[in-house]
Write a protein that binds this DNA or RNA. Structure first.
Lengths: 217, 217
DNA sequence: TGCTTACGTGAGAAGTTATAACGACCCGCG
DNA sequence: CGCGGGTCGTTATAACTTCTCACGTAAGCA
């Protein structure tokens, strides 16, 4: 889809095959989760034999790493696009929820149960902080309330992770609660913990978002 | 550990072997996660051959089901014990956090990424609602605030899941936010999303808990 | 037109879950 | 006390999985 501006036709073909592999992988992940991802099945689906895939991905973990990267990129793009369209914090929350509901397994791949022993590559932290920055700008754009929270004063001395951004501690606090609260509702909803409770998760999500937009986070 | 009051020595032995299997399974899960659980490895660790375990658990999913049950029971016991010791909502939150930190993979087994195609048995919902009831009682014990939230009025008509409990809608709202907000902080912390941010997750947890204890949820 | 390099295949090792058939042991009943 | 039935653990086997290696082919590059 992108970066097909390679010179040699070899690289072009290689990128194309890699893209098709990840595409099939996403189908499998959406259907049965990341733990059920089978290189063999992907190869068979593409009309190739098993070991052929190892020309394109060094291992199964390598493929998953690429998928994690794609998921991060996708979320960052989605939020950035919403932000560029003039969306405020509520709009970003809506975009986040839509992105998560569109493919729950993709959401869990990024924010779900971590695989012990598996460490995300370094460049995902860059994508993660891009996501954070987008939300942080929306947080800072909200009318700053004079009330400084106790945790806000703590953040004043522990804002290394947001170094370089001129947002006040209250905005950082709002960003953190935005993240954790919406993730709390979303992940439980996607995991199906609200089914059978006769409760509309969207209402709960909206209620939490309302609390987030109120002056005091 | 319990229910060893079986009559025949056969059943006693059987229960003992089952208990050892789950014990080894917990070790493996704590070390490498639920997806890396290997029946073969457990058997080898116990000095038995692989297929022997199928006398005790019909399948790998069957073993996981038992582990989920144990996890639910453990959390329910922990919260119940704290509640019986006079702990208020803050005390329950502390107990929950301690339980989660003691074995993150156990927490994720219950509240983490769901395994597609795997459905929890019916009796886990009973254990889950026992957990909910314990927390709900602590929520109802807090001084009721006159301010009815908009979501509280919604809950007045959608409280089937808490039918039979005389708690006001505000208490139900507080229970839901208690659950989702603390899970939001906890799951992100356990997944390691705060590492490298120079931020103490405990402080964030405490800040969210403070907001939960304030009059307006 | 040839050379080199990448690509795909097949075979195979070491793992996994799960089933089937077989032998041995133990428990309870007569 | 003895014997039978049921339970247990074993080995063998099938169908998977990831992943390595050696080989032939085919495609691009000069």
């Amino acid at each position: 889809m992108a970066e097909t501006g390679a010179k040699t036709p070899r690289e072009r073909y290689r990128a194309q095959v890699r893209a098709e592999i990840t595409e099939r992988a996403w189908e499998q992940i959406a259907a049965a989760g990341a733990s059920a991802l089978s290189l063999n099945a992907i190869a068979k689906q593409m009309g190739m034999s098993g070991p052929a895939l190892y020309r394109y991905f060094a291992s199964r973990d390598d493929l998953i790493t690429e998928l994690v990267r794609e998921a991060y990129r996708s979320l960052a793009e989605t939020l950035r696009a919403a932000s560029d369209s003039g969306a405020d914090l509520a709009g970003l929350a809506h975009a986040l929820r839509g992105w998560a509901l569109a493919d729950p397994q993709r959401y869990f791949l990024v924010y779900g149960t971590p695989i012990p022993g598996y460490h995300a590559p370094a460049d995902t932290t860059a994508l993660s902080s891009e996501i954070m920055t987008t939300v942080l700008e929306a947080c800072a754009a909200l009318a700053p309330d004079g009330a400084t929270t106790p945790f806000g004063t703590y953040l004043q001395d522990h804002r290394d992770w947001a170094a370089g951004h001129p947002a006040p501690p209250e905005a950082l606090h709002r960003l953190l609660t935005f993240w954790t609260r919406l993730h709390g509702v979303l992940s439980l909803e996607l995991a199906g913990h609200f089914t059978g409770m006769g409760l509309d998760p969207a209402r709960l999500f909206a209620a939490e978002l309302d609390g987030l937009l109120a002056p005091r986070p």
